[in-house]
Design a protein around this nucleic acid. Sequence first.
DNA 1: AACGTTAGCTAACAGCGTTAGCCTCAGGCT
DNA 2: AGCCTGAGGCTAACGCTGTTAGCTAACGTT
Lengths: 201, 201
Amino acid sequence: MGTPQALGGLPLAPVAPRPELAPTSPRVGEIIAVAREVLEHEGAAALTMRRLGELLGIRAPSLYKHLAGKTQLETMLVDAALVETGDLLHGVVDRADAAGVLGDLLAAYRAHARAQPNLYRLVTAGPLRRDQLTAGVEEWAGEPFYRATGEPYLAQALWAAAHGTIILELDGRYLPGSDLDRTWAALTAAFRRPVDDDRSG
Amino acid sequence: MGTPQALGGLPLAPVAPRPELAPTSPRVGEIIAVAREVLEHEGAAALTMRRLGELLGIRAPSLYKHLAGKTQLETMLVDAALVETGDLLHGVVDRADAAGVLGDLLAAYRAHARAQPNLYRLVTAGPLRRDQLTAGVEEWAGEPFYRATGEPYLAQALWAAAHGTIILELDGRYLPGSDLDRTWAALTAAFRRPVDDDRSG
DNA sequence: AACGTTAGCTAACAGCGTTAGCCTCAGGCT
DNA sequence: AGCCTGAGGCTAACGCTGTTAGCTAACGTT
């Protein structure tokens, strides 16, 4: 298997295995698909058991023949979304060169979140039922940041910074009139220069 | 009025005026205080109109004699919290020197959020009823980041990055075993070096 | 004394996630 | 053929949420 280029040291090759989602029954797959539609097109407040039943032609309590509850449904949405995000970002890093990988990664992260803001909020906000997630899916989704930086704590800081920058954008929290392209450019510039020394500890 | 030192250029003196919160009736002040107690000590899920009434010795519908609704109550909590945050961070920048202002500011931001995580989430998550906020309160709370960086877009990126880093910490979203002190150190290091050139546009 | 305002109350509504219990139908087994 | 079992629907209902309508007692003013 031809691993990506590591010329010059960056970007690194992937090491985390791509997680395989557990297969679901056809009906559960249908429910998840409808839930995702509702979430993205009608908003998080519209994602109710009764609304899902309505679109599936059944009553809300019947959903419990297929699901343990709404929390589990949300977790499955998060699970799938994390794999997709990982696929996307790994692909970006695969195609990038050392000079541009940081900018490409951040641009892709931003575009991805803006393309499905409600799903992004669901994935990243609030507590996470880690025990219900597919094993390794978080590592898979986050690894591109490590591949782009080559240092685990810088990777984590970069991911966190990107998250903060996009979630505030999605929630309309910047002051009116802000030029967010420039904000993202400033973020990218701050992380572009490799940090060769930090006086931590 | 003795403005803080600007020796070496940084930190800058404050320019945003400290906003004055509109006074409330004594009973509304009581409600806000109780709401804040409940939010922080019992969690966001416990912040219900019936729970507030219970602690105040009245029934939930009676709260509507004082408030327009739960949203308005939350907005008032946000309003007060933003002023407090601004006061804290301005004070930190006032006392800092150019070399340490960035680290001091980020450390204070992190500590402040960790000291009242539920209030921090309320202030920063989800949509904001900007028209119900006291005018200028967001500028006041955010200005310390400008004073510390001297450049508006870098300031915005720094604030967003700090927000992302702390909100993931509060929500337990980092991989288990992460050393968050080192993550914060990496973030600080990335922003410490002044960015003299970014090829934006 | 009469009035209006303030601030409490109960009852109720619509919507939420969820549970209990019932029914019907398809498929496999004896 | 007859039986049984499980899957997947259903209705009714519970407790919770924010919120509204309408009533009432107290208080201050004219």
